[in-house]
């Protein structure tokens, strides 16, 4: 994987940016997300979380299962504010 490979499309985060944070010692998914916004885009990591986890695991020489996944901020299904507020869809 080269530094220009895009890991998170929604937030336009490359492997190079993620590797830079791993090099600094940020080794958890949470830290990487907080700093780079990878996984925080409109799809809420549906597209990129697996790829991100695999990339972190490979860097750390660990198994994907051994990278802890955050439990907070459950992704909500995107829903229009109008629908939430009880207005009719249009």
């Amino acid at each position: 994987m080269d530094d220009n490979t895009i890991i998170c499309r929604c937030e336009d985060v490359t492997w190079g940016e993620i590797r830079k944070q791993l090099d600094k010692g940020y080794t958890t998914l949470d830290e990487i997300k907080r700093i780079t916004r990878a996984g925080m885009g409109p799809c809420q990591g549906k597209t990129c979380q697996r790829i991100l986890l695999r990339a972190i695991a490979r860097y750390l020489n660990k198994k994907v299962e051994d990278i802890p996944i955050s439990t907070f901020r459950p992704p909500a299904k995107p829903i229009p504010l109008g629908t939430l507020a009880g207005e009719k869809d249009d």
Binding site: F72, P75, P78, P80, L81, G82, L84, E87, D90
Partner: peptide, 25 residues
């Protein structure tokens, strides 16, 4: 919470009606 908050937002800025909430915490 998200229902009430959505109402408050739309009341002040009606243009937000079709904007999607993606996450809450």
């Amino acid at each position: 919470f998200s229902k009430v908050m959505a109402k408050k937002m739309i009341q002040l800025v009606p243009a937000l009606k079709n904007v999607h909430m993606v996450r809450q915490w």
